[in-house]
Structure formats: structure tokens, C-alpha cells
């Protein structure tokens, strides 16, 4: 379980390259460093639900990112995204 404030990195993984899949981690976050805002609860993994497979439950976190670390021309001040624990590693 990740605590609020914990630094995390989004896995730099590209399942799209390996075949049919359904993922809820946007491409622009892969490999990026962020900070846990809080846990939002636990939910069945949509990557399995999308194929009507048995879906293990995963912790879901709100994670904050610095927009200019993603796009140097970004115009906002903070990006916050829901991410499942399976996509996060300690940083």
C-alpha cells in the first residue's frame, strides 16, 4: 500500500506493441515520475474485465504529475490521474 506523498514511477511498458489489450494508463505517463495523492479504493482489473476474464482486485491511486516534465510546453500546473497499483513502482 502506497502512502500519500510517496514518489512513484509509472511502468515504462507498452502492451499495445504485444497484441490486443485494454489499458487505462495513458501513453503520456509511461515511465514518468509522480507522487501519490491518495488511494481511491480497490477495483477489479479492467485489463481483464475487458476480455470477460476473471479479474483480480487492484488498489487504485490518484497520482499527481508535473505537466512540464511530460510536455515542456504544457500550460497547466498539475496533472492528476487514476492509476492501478500494477502500473506503479516505488521511485
Amino acid at each position: 500500500m502506497l502512502a500519500p506523498g510517496a514518489p512513484v514511477r509509472v511502468r515504462d511498458d507498452w502492451p499495445e506493441a504485444r497484441g490486443p489489450c485494454h489499458i487505462r494508463t495513458p501513453h503520456y505517463l509511461r515511465g514518468r515520475l509522480g507522487t501519490v495523492v491518495r488511494q481511491l479504493g480497490s477495483f477489479p482489473n479492467p485489463e481483464d474485465l475487458a476480455f470477460a476474464r476473471p479479474a483480480p482486485t487492484l488498489a487504485l491511486y490518484h497520482v499527481a504529475f508535473e505537466p512540464r516534465s511530460i510536455w515542456p510546453d504544457a500550460g497547466g500546473d498539475e496533472i492528476v490521474v487514476e492509476l492501478y497499483e500494477s502500473w506503479l513502482e516505488a521511485a
Partner: peptide, 8 residues
């Protein structure tokens, strides 16, 4: 703050 509504 932009919130990308990606999940549940």
C-alpha cells in the same frame, strides 16, 4: 489542476 478520468 487537470484530472484525467481514466478509471473507476
Amino acid at each position: 489542476r487537470v484530472v484525467d478520468s481514466t478509471a473507476d
